[in-house]
Amino acid sequence: MTAPLLQVDDLHVRFPVAGGGLLGKGRRTLHAVNGISFELAKGECLSIVGESGCGKSTTALSILGLQEPTEGMIRYRGKPLTGAGAPNRIDRAKAVQMVFQDPYASLNPRQSVRTSLAAPLRLHGISNGSEVEGRIEAMLKNVGLTPEQARRYPHEFSGGQRQRIGIARALILEPEIVVLDEPVSALDVSVRAQIINLLLDLQEKLGLSYLMISHDLSVVEHMSDRVLVMYFGEIVEEGRWQHIFQTPTHPYTRRLIAAIPDPDARQPLGGCQENSANAAVSAGGQVQDVFSPPTRSELVEIAPQHWMRFAAAAQ
């Protein structure tokens, strides 16, 4: 059996946080990610959903090498991507790239499009001028821009076009995995559709694997093959998109889905009342605190490939 493209095994990320006490007496540990494990297959779109502070961004940063895990292992094609034996930045760059949320902050205002695309190529040893030009041209066409636009600077583009440039930059080194961090949430509604369509087209054309971080469940349902639901640093439910959206099981997942304001909903703002919703979450898992170590609980397969977290005592 071949190793999976990306394998995250029991990932923990903890941060020391200065507490309120004098002389650092109140120093506490923030458990951002608490032992999560998952795999990403070739050509798959896996989404991590959850609310701010649930650890989904920290997980992505660990995979990108921008955040050192406290414990656990991340492997790319069976080889470690973190800790001892991790590749250097140059080698890692060919494996994983990222598309950022904010198209305004993610492009260097002082670099033309050509410079931001050519510099990584040169860094990775492609210095032949015509090859660099050729790859830039091909990449710009891929993301729906014209080669003539390479001369321009970021401020000359609209938000949607900037996001296309951001996608081009992420793909220029031909990585296999692309982390999409809220790729459309900063864009206008009409532009979102264009970028979503583009991402899906590119995935099919280039055989990309996406790891998408999002809180927008309608986008997640549209794009994902599999979904992980994270809550306070843990995966509370995991399954194919049909499992999560058609038969959501964990109370937190249900609550998330019920909270989405939907223009088609005849009953505006369906879902449970807020107090009962909190109670429901604590019934399935337990009400959590990022500063306390996780209580014992485990993921149980409730249907083929559909996993949900139960408290260990409930077994």
């Binding site: 979102r192 264009q194 369509n197 309608s218 549209h222 939907d262």
Partner: peptide, 23 residues
């Protein structure tokens, strides 16, 4: 604008439809 929006549940009902490009 309405066509450009991915709707919750529409993939379950009709499979993945390409989103409308407003342009």
């Amino acid at each position: 604008l309405l066509g450009a929006l991915p709707r919750l549940g529409s993939r379950s009902e009709q499979g993945r439809q390409r989103l409308v490009d407003i342009d």
